[in-house]
Design a protein around this nucleic acid. Structure first.
Length: 558
RNA sequence: GUUCCAGUGGUGUAGACCGGUCAAGCAUUCUGCCCUUUCAAGGCAGAGAUCCCGGGUUCAAAUCCCGGCUGGAGCACCA
């Protein structure tokens, strides 16, 4: 063993490490550490005296098996196992609030929860968390559904939190009647102040009858802001969430499905606690800003003698320089700095889709992030790497030139060529008519000088007779030559002009990046017009792009 | 301010609960080679880490304990 270690580490080993390895593989020696460590020191000393060559010989003679190449360690696939999960009995959920367009953060919560349900053959619930009529809209509700469908996430149960309003009232009254909740008529600022100073207010002294009376007054008489129902937590608690949090408040706005049927709405913590319990949720994975609220939901459920789900937490998912919050995005839209929620620079699902990111790639990417609580900015290039693997086998290869320069070729022996649409996969061929007049890319043109040979991909070799603003060349045959530039081209006659949009990072630090959207005028083959809208293709030697429309493409990644 | 959470190559993570087979695995990134009528994909190789810092326990610490530093989140009648 000492030999092996020495061999693997440049001819030297250390007794500490050899000892560790022995104790690790053979626990029976652990009681005899003192005795064996002496022997080990001696062996290690002797091994270190040998040269690498001698060590190798010795290994070959006595222990040939350790020269065999080590097997690659297989990493764990997917999410870590759940401790108290029973196959077939796991129920998870994804509860978005329909108050905006879904983004990569939603995707993370939805994917982690749905993967766990899948992993244990359980059920997965989509629950629209719609308890604040002021913020929620049908438009967002629909957008979230569309986004999740695009991601390929399937639900066993779809419901709204607001389906259970009567139940919330029932549980709320139960808490009031058991003295575990009270109606507070203090001003908002005073509640907040008392919370910070850990002081109870007079309202918490009121008796159950008075609270019941006030509850009825909340239905009609009180105005929004006049009264709230508070949970009797602990005003002295270190966890500020526990300091008598609000359970119900009055909102007079029109709910997007229920209209004005209700005016007393449950708060988030109360609704989530009750819903998770009655929906049978066994495991709830939430992003870590909710970590402090676990104590509250658990306490509420204990007080009501209701079953609690297990709660797990994961870090928020955000990309560097790509804002996720509506507070940041909305002004950008209003100022015209980004076009809409589907602007390819944004991390919304719509935008990612438009940019050419595939849902499978998002899923793989999110799974690769794991369940860590460390706060980090995710690497966009890792998402791109996953996406490339999904996109590559199905993307047609087409020619496109940017910053076009003219090239005229003499003696061209053919009037058309057929070029395969994919290098390895059989995706058919396309026929391109040629007459000797081409566009080539400006970047390539820079490196092309008179007297050189180049190859026009799929066509043949050209020797350059003239460089400058416009190039001239002569056809030299089709034989493959190894070390000449091989470049893409487009016939001038049928070239199709489009706009190429290259999204870049939106923010540099806190500053809006004024160059976040690069636009290029480029020429493609006429074949571009035949592509379906939304099709992902590869422009050869440029990168993967998505056809946005007949005259616009969006750069996905290299 | 206060409470909670986190800190492993450039980046993202695995390992930590239960100390030894981890002088630290995987992915990404970068470099080189092979393949190739693409600078893609695929194959191979390589680069890159004081495991945040300091102390302690132990024969043995990324892992346990104590102290510190740094970052994030909560402290809403939003979710």
């Amino acid at each position: 063993m000492a030999l092996q270690n020495a061999f693997e580490h440049g001819g030297e080993t250390r007794d500490k490490i050899v000892l560790g390895k022995i104790l690790g593989t053979k626990p029976e020696f652990r009681t005899k550490v003192k005795e064996i460590s002496k022997d080990i020191s001696e062996i290690v000393f002797n091994v270190n005296q040998l040269s690498s060559e001698e060590q190798k010989k010795e290994i070959e003679k006595s222990f040939p098996e350790i020269l065999a190449p080590k097997e690659k360690i297989q990493g764990r696939e997917g999410l870590p196992e759940l401790k108290d999960a029973i196959q077939g009995k796991v129920i998870t959920r994804f509860p978005p609030e329909p108050n905006g367009y879904p983004h990569i953060g939603h995707a993370k919560a939805a994917i982690i929860n749905s993967e766990y349900a899948k992993m244990y053959g359980g059920k997965f619930i989509l629950r629209m968390d719609d308890t604040n009529p002021e913020a929620e809209r049908m438009e967002y509700h629909a957008a979230i559904k569309v986004g999740l469908e695009w991601l390929g996430i399937e639900f066993d149960i779809v419901k709204n939190t607001s389906d259970d309003m009567e139940l919330f009232y029932e549980k709320g009254i139960e808490l009031i009647n058991s003295g575990k909740a009270y109606i507070c008529t203090c001003k908002r600022e005073d509640i907040s102040k008392n919370r910070r100073e850990r002081k109870a207010c007079k309202c918490s002294m009121k008796d159950i009858d008075k609270n019941n009376k006030n509850w009825r007054k909340m239905q009609e008489k009180f105005k929004p802001g006049d009264a709230v129902v508070r949970f009797r937590g602990d005003m002295k608690a270190d966890n500020a969430v526990m300091r008598d949090p609000v359970l119900f408040r009055i909102i007079d706005g029109k709910h997007y499905t229920l209209g004005e049927k209700y005016r007393i709405w449950p708060s988030y913590d109360f609704a989530v606690a009750i819903e998770d319990s009655i929906d049978g949720v066994t495991h709830a994975f939430r992003s870590k800003e909710f970590e402090l609220r676990k104590e509250l939901t658990d306490t509420i459920l204990d007080t009501l003698n209701m079953r609690k789900p297990y709660q797990g937490f994961f870090s928020r998912l955000e990309f560097k320089g790509m804002p996720i919050s509506k507070r940041v995005i909305r002004p950008l839209i209003e100022e015209g700095k980004v076009s809409w929620y589907d602007d390819p620079r944004l991390p919304t699902l719509e935008a990612l889709k438009r940019r050419g990111i595939k849902p499978e790639a998002i899923r793989k990417f999110i799974m690769s992030l794991g369940l860590t609580k460390a706060n980090t900015l995710a690497p966009f290039d890792s998402l791109e790497a996953f996406n490339r693997k999904f996109v590559d086998p199905d993307s047609k290869r087409l020619f496109m030139v940017s910053n076009a320069k003219k090239l005229t070729v003499k003696n061209l022996p053919v009037s058309s060529v057929e070029i395969p649409n994919h290098p390895v996969k059989n995706m058919g061929k396309r026929k391109i008519d040629v007459n000797g007049e081409f566009y080539i890319s400006g970047d390539d043109a820079q490196n092309i000088k008179e007297g050189m040979q180049i190859r026009l991909l799929g066509l043949g070799n050209i020797s350059i007779k003239k460089d400058g603003v416009e190039f001239e060349g002569e056809f030299e045959g089709e034989k493959n030559i190894a070390d000449i530039p091989k470049i893409q081209w487009v016939p001038q006659k049928t070239a199709h002009k489009i706009k190429m949009i290259i999204p870049k990072v939106l923010f540099k630090g806190d500053e809006f990046n004024e160059d976040s959207l690069e636009e290029l005028d480029v020429y493609t083959e006429p074949q571009y017009l035949q592509l379906k809208e939304g099709e992902e293709i590869q422009f050869v030697r440029f990168g993967y792009c998505r056809k946005d429309s007949q005259n616009q493409a969006i750069f996905t990644h290299k």
